[in-house]
Design a protein around this nucleic acid. Structure first.
Lengths: 151, 151
DNA sequence: GCTATATATTTTGATTATCAAAATATTTGC
DNA sequence: GCAAATATTTTGATAATCAAAATATATAGC
């Protein structure tokens, strides 16, 4: 029992590290090597469609707005984002992806899908279902630990 | 098909973020709130038994030795690590955990085990086996992507 | 046994990501 | 119209990281 838990723990830690490495590597090799993982995640949080406010993006990324301001500044300089003030409420700043930003978004999305496809390639239909169920349970458990703040 | 992959991808991303949050939170709440996640990982890499050289630790953590030097300096100041020069080869620095370092190691290890136990608590024996197999496959796949550097 | 080369580590100088708190600008409620 | 609330940016700081230069020691070849 203890053995199995130890093994699962070790696998989870390794998987976590590998995903990190792969994502980092794939960005550095690809067409958008001027972006860091953090910056890709900011682009992801802005989203393909329309615009988001600074508060919305900072909330999604769980960073302060001060941090986001400098991140957005840099991504505008690099040509991935554009900023505009709301006409109805001049305090609000709307951030959206430029054409280049959308391309980066789509390429990163494809990287993620390719990774999942590679993982699934030698799973049977049934195993896929089981994994999906297990991941859902795992996710719910983690969320409940996170919410209740136990351990 | 596409749908299922999208869902799995989303779950993986959420699980990744949750694990991060939980680990961060558990450290900040616990007896070693003067440690960051990065520092805990350095302590983990040094290990409970005997000592490791700077190169070994930097290799395990995949950081440069320059980065490690400053990290070790700080952990020595905080009382978690100790440093000594090898007698047989005076270029080599051996790093080991202090008593406090070992305690931090054990508590962090327990946190990990508790998390795995919580995750597994509503899995049947059979489901546990399936998850273990799935994680092994996932791990092998990720490693092969990482090695071959595809996508 | 000296000297050149290799190895292990630290130092230096820089960058990125982050935060909390103060400052600024705008809106809303009374 | 003014006080309080809201949205964002600025300021000043810290942690984690790297590459390249510097330092110290060991080893290999003559």
């Amino acid at each position: 029992m203890k053995e199995k838990f130890l093994e699962i723990n070790k696998l989870l830690v390794e998987i976590y590290d590998d995903v990190n490495h792969i994502e980092e590597y794939s960005i550095k090799q690809g067409a958008f090597s001027d972006l860091s993982i953090t910056e890709i995640h900011t682009i992801e949080a802005v989203g393909l469609y329309g615009t988001k406010t600074m508060s919305e993006i900072a909330g999604a990324l769980d960073i302060t707005m001060g941090t986001l301001t400098t991140a957005v500044d840099k991504l505008i300089r690099k040509g991935y984002l554009e900023r505009s003030r709301s006409d109805t409420d001049r305090r609000i700043v709307n951030v959206g992806l430029t054409k280049r930003g959308k391309l980066a978004y789509r390429i990163h999305e494809k990287f993620h899908m390719d990774m999942v496809k590679a993982i699934m390639s030698d799973f049977s239909e049934e195993e896929e279902e089981i994994l999906l169920t297990a991941l859902k349970k795992l996710n719910i458990h983690l969320k409940s630990i996170y919410m209740h703040g136990n351990t």
